[in-house]
Design a protein around this nucleic acid. Structure first.
Length: 895
RNA sequence: GGGCGGUUAGCUCAGUUGGUUAGAGCGCCUGCCUUACAAGCAGGAGGUCGCAGGUUCGAGUCCUGCACCGCCCACCA
């Protein structure tokens, strides 16, 4: 029997092999259990991968998010859950369309030249070619998703589900069509939702313009505006009804400059007397507030711009000009006529398209909307009732804030790539029929010429349905029975409103009668942002993007994953620093070499059988009782950490255990046993093998590749499962927790550290073994004598002599509450340095003593503080007093 | 305009319901190739917890104010 592990840890040599193996062997595929089957009795854990865009390349944010999901999923799977992690991609309507259009432009073509059908065909080709890049990269990174269930949001079944949802919402009166002011992007030439608009504080100007009063030469009403070009669409000027400055003018007509159109002066509470001149121009077709005023006063709506924000035929002499060119010309013309009363600097939030950056134009247009309030109310209630729990919990507040101030959702897009709206227009009578399939005739007039609505749906409309449509809705599938609601959603706060909120609204609505609950997920974990080492947002323009594949090839996936996990403390952005990854690569190397060390001994001794989670047996040795206790404690910490999404704490606990406890102490302690005769080595090795094997399982969700490699090597090809990912996850066995052993080891570690410290300070040659003298009472005395070999070996000591309390005065002695220890060594001690060290320590202790005394003399403290705290301080005070006495004695001894 | 978060070692961050000596990694200094690992081992230095008040027997932790940094939301010209 031999256990093959190359001398050098080379992640590039092992990771691709396992990545392929997991996919080829379908390790992470999950069969939906039939009702009543054994598998159906398992607890279920399901999670939907936030579907990456088909346009996308994997970035650090994805890798972070995927690492967190993979850790949770692997952990749950190993804990015995029926575990589904469902992958897919999103068609990402506007983003993908833009990319293909750009490609066409580079070929000298355009979507208009191609025509709609050919263009959509082209996007499909594009998607075949470039789509799914992230999923391919995920395979390399070992994401344990069920690849057999991969979906695409434009798949036929998912598209049918989208239609079904649209029709039902329409029939319920929750989708309507109407002519309203929407956010219009003249760049993308489509309506966009409120969320797709980003407000940017911009330096602008506030212009004051004189509108002549009709029939009263020389009288004007001066209005204030930041957008003079929209005056072409003015239909009134509004003042506040109680604004005394204008009372005399109520009911008068004004003459709209430049176009010489007569418009009324009206009163409306919206006009703020304190702002500008108190008079505001009213342009219902180009401003959301004015739109409302227009409705209240029954005013006409005059659109003066086309879909590219150029002035249209309603703009008289300005027709054909771009909105900004028109602004300049209008200002010049006004000035020429003496109607420009003034202008001043004015900062204003400018609305820009999140996608292309073009300034958004509020535009009157006919669109489809979701009536959102009824959906939002239920979604709010679901979170209020705790049916969905947010982590970190303050995101629930953000969620409520948005949900309570929500506006109807504009879902139609004037794009070609996406789910077509299932509505048909009759050419004869303009009746609109919403239906699951194309109607043959118009229900109203019987007309035969029906045309499907040319718009497509907002991408988020379909992704908002995924928690149930990806499980087969509207069919009543077994998958829905088993996996809905999903257990968890892990995502970023940037799509909290876009996606999370909409999934909740739509899930609660469409899954209202699901037996296990309507919410799409039980928990939402919102992760932070990955930034660069200087905390800057990663962006291509800044050139500070860390490419996950590159960094992975350099340090190994396991090291990058461990870095991300270690830094994933909730609510704090991650400043990704490759130095840190280098440290975790060293950790992986440590694990590798620890395994090699074990294997080397296994091969030498032979005849050691490894069974998964080898029972600890009698544990005659302190170090065995100790390491098992530590392991079980750490297993508890890791499980708790993962339960609370404290990836950092879980990863930190394992790191400390494996490196600090197992490698630095345990392995060193048992080396003599391992190199002893086979009868001694064999049980030690069996025990060690058990600890290593358990540790690999504990570590596996964090570092799946290296643990898989070592685990299989350990079993020499006869592993009990096809993958360590299918083995059981360690849990705390309370019977193995051993406070006594942990205390004893701590004392021995203190003693050894003290001796090492003395040796270093006295510059004892490393190869020189010095005798030591120790003073300790009772239990500690026994402990030291029983483990003399351990102290000798680890501290570089030869011969331990016991002494009385006067040892404290020996030159250079180290003093602790439990023991004194001194080297027996030809002194080359630096007396001055030693005095300084002791004085410094004394000062600190005296400070502490004074503190303790002050507290213990304080009646209030004694009366109010819990007994355990008072007792603790008493004990510490006694300890400090003792130490002070010892250090004073040592100082006296320093001559 | 509204809301949220942050400020702890040179750097990046932890710090549970207030309670005895504020921790880690990296970096830094010193000494070591000790037969798993120099990607390693051992030892060490380094912090008035942003500032000012307050509550409390007791504050890094709770409250108020201030300063600085960051984020989200927003249809008043």
């Amino acid at each position: 029997m031999s256990h093959e592990l190359p001398k050098t840890y080379d992640p590039g040599a092992i990771e691709p092999r396992w990545a392929e193996y997991w996919v080829a062997e379908k390790i992470f595929s999950v069969k939906t259990p039939a009702p009543g089957s054994d598998a159906a009795k398992l607890p279920v854990f399901s999670l939907l991968l936030p579907p990456p865009n088909v346009t996308g390349r994997l970035h650090m944010g994805h890798m972070f998010e995927h690492t967190e999901m993979d850790i949770i999923i692997r952990w749950r799977r190993m804990r015995g859950f029926l575990t589904l992690w469902l992958p897919g991609t999103d068609h990402a309507g506007i983003a993908t369309q833009l990319m293909v259009e750009r490609q066409l432009a580079s070929e000298g073509s355009s979507r208009q030249k191609l025509g709609r059908d050919a263009f959509v065909e082209r996007v499909w080709q594009w998607r075949e070619h470039y789509g799914g890049a992230i999923l391919a990269q995920m395979k390399r990174l070992g994401a344990s998703v069920d690849w057999e269930r991969e979906y695409f949001t434009m798949d036929e079944d998912l598209s049918l589900a989208v239609t079904e949802v649209f029709v039902r919402l329409y029939e319920e009166g929750l989708i309507y069509r109407g002519k309203y002011i929407v956010n219009w992007c003249p760049g993308c030439m489509t309506a966009i939702s409120d969320l797709e608009v980003k407000h940017e504080e911009t330096a602008g100007k506030l212009y004051q313009i004189r509108y002549p009063v009709v029939g009263e030469a020389g009288r004007f009403v001066t209005i204030a505006t930041t957008r003079p070009e929209t005056m072409l669409g003015d239909v009134a000027v509004a003042v506040h009804p109680k604004d005394a400055r204008y009372t005399a003018l109520h009911g008068k007509k004004l003459l709209l400059p430049l176009l010489d159109r007569e418009i009324p002066l009206i009163t409306d509470e919206l006009a703020d007397p304190a702002f500008g001149t108190g008079a505001v121009k009213v342009t219902p077709a180009h401003d959301a507030n004015d739109f409302q005023i227009g409705l209240r006063h029954n005013l006409p709506q005059i659109s003066v711009m086309d879909e590219q924000a150029r002035i249209n035929e309603n703009g008289g002499p300005y027709a054909g000009l771009d909105r900004y060119a028109a602004r300049e010309k209008i200002l010049r013309d006004l000035e020429a006529r003496g109607l420009l009363a003034g202008m001043k600097d004015h900062a204003l939030p400018l609305a820009k398209c999140a996608r292309c950056g073009t300034v958004v134009e509020p535009r009157l247009s006919t669109q489809w909307f979701v009536k959102i309030k009824p959906l939002a109310d239920r979604a709010i209630a679901a979170v209020e009732k705790g049916e969905i729990v947010f982590t970190p919990e303050n995101y629930a507040k953000t969620y409520f804030e948005w949900m309570r101030n929500i506006y109807d959702w504009c879902i139609s897009r004037q794009l070609w790539w996406g789910h077509r709206i299932p509505a048909w227009h009759c050419k004869a009578c303009h009746e609109i029929t919403v239906a699951r399939t194309a109607p043959a005739t118009c229900a109203k007039c019987g007309g035969l010429q029906l045309e499907q609505d040319t718009d497509v749906l907002d991408t988020w409309f379909s992704s908002g349905l995924l928690p149930f449509t990806s499980l087969g809705w509207p069919e009543k599938t077994r998958d829905l029975d088993v996996f809905y609601p999903t257990s968890l959603l892990i995502t970023g706060f940037d799509i909290l409103f876009f996606w999370v909120a909409r999934m909740i609204m739509l899930g609660c609505h469409f899954m209202a009668d699901h037996p296990q609950g309507s919410v799409p997920f039980r928990h939402v974990y919102i992760h932070a942002l990955v930034r660069d080492a200087e905390r800057q947002k990663m962006s291509k323009t800044k050139g500070n993007v860390v490419d996950p594949i590159e960094i992975t090839e350099k340090y190994g996936t396991d090291a990058v994953r461990f870095t991300l996990a270690s830094m994933a403390s909730p609510g704090t952005d991650i400043a990704f620093n490759p130095d840190r990854t280098e440290g975790y690569r060293a950790f992986a190397n440590k694990i590798w070499n620890a395994a090699r060390f074990v294997f080397m001994n296994l091969d030498r001794v032979g005849g050691v059988s490894l069974t998964q989670g080898a029972p600890p047996g009698e544990m005659k040795h302190l170090e065995d009782r100790w390491i098992v206790s530590r392991f079980n404690r750490v297993a508890g910490e890791v499980n708790r950490g993962l339960t609370e999404y404290r990836f950092d704490e879980a990863a930190g606990a394992i790191y400390k255990f494996f490196w600090g406890d197992l490698c630095d102490w345990y392995l060193e302690i048992i080396k003599p046993r391992l190199s002893g005769p086979d009868e001694m080595a064999r049980p030690a090795l069996t025990f060690l093998g058990g600890i290593l094997e358990s540790s690999l399982r504990l570590l596996s969700p964090f570092m799946p590749f290296i643990t898989e490699e070592i685990w299989h090597a350990m079993y020499d090809g006869k592993a009990p499962e096809k993958s360590i990912a299918l083995a059981h996850y360690p849990r705390t066995d309370n019977r193995m927790l051993n406070d006594e052993a942990e205390l004893e080891m701590t004392i021995l570690q203190d003693l050894i550290a003290s001796i090492r410290n003395m040796r270093a300070e006295m510059k004892v040659e490393p190869k020189v073994k010095t005798p030591v003298r120790i003073h300790a009472d009772g239990m500690v005395h026994t402990l030291v004598s029983e483990n003399q070999w351990m102290v000798e070996r680890l501290a570089g000591v030869e011969g331990i002599g016991f002494a009385d309390a006067s040892l404290a005065q020996a030159p250079g002695a180290r003093t602790t509450p439990r023991f004194e220890v001194a080297l027996v060594y030809e002194q080359k001690m630096d007396v001055a340095a030693e005095r300084e060290r002791l004085t410094k320590e004394l000062k600190k202790l005296e400070g502490e003593l004074a503190n303790a005394e002050r507290q213990l003399e304080n009646a209030q403290f004694l009366a109010k503080a819990p007994a355990s705290v008072v007792e603790g301080i008493r004990r510490r005070k006694a300890e400090v007093e003792l130490l002070i006495a010892k250090i004073r004695a040592a100082l006296d001894g320093l001559v």
